[in-house]
């Protein structure tokens, strides 16, 4: 898909050398998507989001606080004209609940005329301890939401077959976890992530290069983000790694730079790994005892 303005979002303003991220009908300037939960204050959240450079943020759907209806809304702190809001189905343990929550989120975003109204970040969890996804429930909900016209961005485990099944069910984007949500564990199984990328994006394996794969969850440090991007992911989605950092704003900036570094590095073509050293300074012209010994020759 060409990197141009589309029905949702705009490629304009993408940092130099960085292609925008195209997900279905939406084009994002930044490949870093950030969550809005767990911040000490809405003000801090807003500043951290700005520092992250993200133009897409996730939100959750929850019951109104009827006791404190004068309480501030998160929406007052999100520049809705600049951000694509990605509503999630976090906390749902059944496909039925996830579909309900997705429809409620769409209803609210439609009122706000936000670009994210057509989107949902689908989570159907299987276990409270690990927050690992329920693959059966996720697949069931994905099918139903796709049939209902949603662009479904699917949170999934790092199981390559589950990722393929979700793609086949019509998911717009597959988002394997690096490690459990909020754990900061990084990318536990880079081989599995590499396989997912291969199976979903490599035409030799039935994939399509433009199919977006985002690493979602468990990313704790900037180096985790870079590793995900160097593996070939199209983007990274994270929340806790920034929100619970000692200095969330500084960490947000670091995450942005790490994402850009990983994206550029992956496309720059890394060197081949070698078993032995390869001197960067020439052996020729050495004085002293090394002058007569040129290793490897």
């Amino acid at each position: 898909m060409p990197a141009t303005d589309s029905a949702c979002g705009s490629a304009a303003g993408a940092p130099a050398g960085l292609a925008p991220l195209v997900i279905g009908p939406c084009t994002l300037r930044s490949r870093l998507v950030v969550g809005t939960g767990k911040y000490a204050s809405f003000e801090l959240m807003r500043t951290a989001i700005e520092a992250s450079g993200a133009d897409c943020v996730t939100v959750a759907v929850r019951r109104e606080r009827l006791v404190d209806s004068q309480g501030r809304s998160i929406l007052e702190f999100l520049p809705l004209d600049q951000l694509t809001i990605l509503p999630n189905t976090a906390g749902c343990f059944t496909a039925t609940d996830a579909v309900r929550v997705a429809r409620l989120g769409r209803e609210i975003l439609s009122q706000l005329n936000n670009r994210g109204a057509a989107w949902v970040k689908l989570e159907v969890l299987g276990d409270r301890l690990t927050l690992l996804p329920d693959p059966v429930g996720t697949l069931e909900a994905c099918r139903e939401l796709v049939a209902d016209g949603f662009c479904v961005l699917c949170y999934t485990s790092d199981d390559p077959i589950a990722a393929v099944r979700l793609r086949d069910a019509g998911a717009t984007c597959v988002m394997p976890a690096g490690s459990p949500i909020g754990s900061g564990g990084g990318i536990h199984n880079p081989q599995a992530i590499a396989l997912i990328l291969e199976m979903l994006k490599d035409p030799r394996h039935g994939g399509e290069g433009s199919f977006p794969v985002i690493i979602d969850a468990g990313v704790g440090t900037p180096s985790d983000v870079t590793i995900a991007m160097e593996l070939g992911a199209d983007g990274v989605l994270l929340n806790t790694g920034i929100a619970h950092a000692k200095d969330p704003v500084a960490m947000a900036r670091a995450m942005r730079l790490a994402c850009e570094a990983g994206f550029l590095g992956a496309r720059a073509g890394r060197i081949v790994r070698r078993r032995y050293a390869s001197a960067s300074s020439p052996w020729e012209g050495m004085i002293g005892s090394a002058s007569s010994e040129i290793p490897g020759e």
């Binding site: 959240m45 939100v59 959750a60 929406l75 009122q111 994270l238």
Partner: peptide, 28 residues
């Protein structure tokens, strides 16, 4: 059942109706 356009909805609530009113909050 989702009530589309709730702010203008004339749907009558019956005795025992289960009503959910939700909004957006911070989340990941």
């Amino acid at each position: 059942q989702l009530v589309s356009g709730a702010k203008n909805s004339a749907l009558l609530l019956g005795d025992g109706a289960a009503v959910e009113v939700v909004t957006l909050v911070g989340g990941g």
